[in-house]
Nucleic acid binder design. Structure first.
Lengths: 160, 160
DNA sequence: AAATGATATGTTATATTATAACACTCTCAA
DNA sequence: TTGAGAGTGTTATAATATAACATATCATTT
């Protein structure tokens, strides 16, 4: 782990947030979903689906097939509890899931990531100002923006 | 094509720009590379690698295998002549390849796209102000940014 | 022109990521 | 108690991408 912090409290917080958000959306946080979410958080770096399948298979002592995991990922993505890092084909826990909730119960994806090219440590940003700026920039091109994905690659402090 | 404009002049311009940039980098714009670049431009929408393989196979009347196309895509990507749209696993021509040239002959990727969810029409933006803003935001997180990828999804004028 | 080395392309096989389709299970409300 | 929906299991396969090695092409030197 490249950034020092209380890791367990991250995980605990993520779990509590997940429980709250599931309740809000009348969705069930099943054992499988909780396991997947926790594994993603424990790794604390973008995690590929097949790595996740491996870890999950080991942990449960039985063979987990891809669709099982992909469905679970989709569930967590839809609720904004995790994010997909497109440039890595990998998944990471959302640090502020509540901030992605719209008034209409819809999840808006305005997600920004700083991704270290060396260690793949990934930091999520949330910046309302930047969101607004990108939105209005879109408007000048007569484009109605919905979701925003920003991936900035470079070097984190440790790897520099 | 969802945005009206002189399409042939786009293509012609892209080809001339490619020739110039290849010369600058002492790289060869071979027939294959030119064919691929033109096909990408003719489609004028993000094009998947395997669609490209199909079109290229048809056009040349022989079977083109994936590595051939992927290598060519890599070449064009490296020179900044095309971009990869990560959210679509697809490739599109760069509208302003010269603007990605650094002084040190290195290509910097600060690329922003507006992607229509319905028709996949994709508009490239270049905005130095936004680049700077994202760069300085990265700095506040003690992160040395190199490349920036922004993909905004939503609806274009025609699809709204 | 022949030899050489570097670059480009061809070819075969396979890795990696993701989804389709259908079967089974479990819960909970009618 | 039953049947409808949600969740998960299972098998097969689709879609995207790369590794490894063979061959060809071209420029340069001899």
């Amino acid at each position: 782990m490249s950034n020092c912090h209380n890791h367990q409290s991250c995980i605990d917080g993520a779990l509590i947030a997940a429980q709250t958000i599931c309740k809000q959306h009348n969705a069930k946080l099943t054992e499988l979903r909780e396991q997947v979410l926790l594994l993603i958080w424990k790794n604390h770096k973008p995690l590929g689906a097949y790595t996740l399948i491996e870890q999950l298979s080991e942990q449960t002592q039985r063979r987990i097939a891809p669709p099982t995991v992909y469905r679970t990922l989709e569930f967590l993505l839809d609720l904004g509890l995790i994010h997909r890092i497109n440039s890595l084909n990998a998944y990471i826990g959302c640090t502020q899931p509540h901030s992605h909730q719209g008034q209409d119960d819809e999840v808006h994806h305005h997600n920004y990531f700083l991704i270290c090219k060396k260690c793949h440590h990934t930091q999520e940003l949330i910046d309302k100002d930047l969101s607004g700026r990108i939105q209005s920039l879109s408007q000048t091109f007569d484009f109605t923006s919905q979701d925003q994905w920003l991936e900035v690659t470079g070097l984190c402090r440790e790897c520099r």
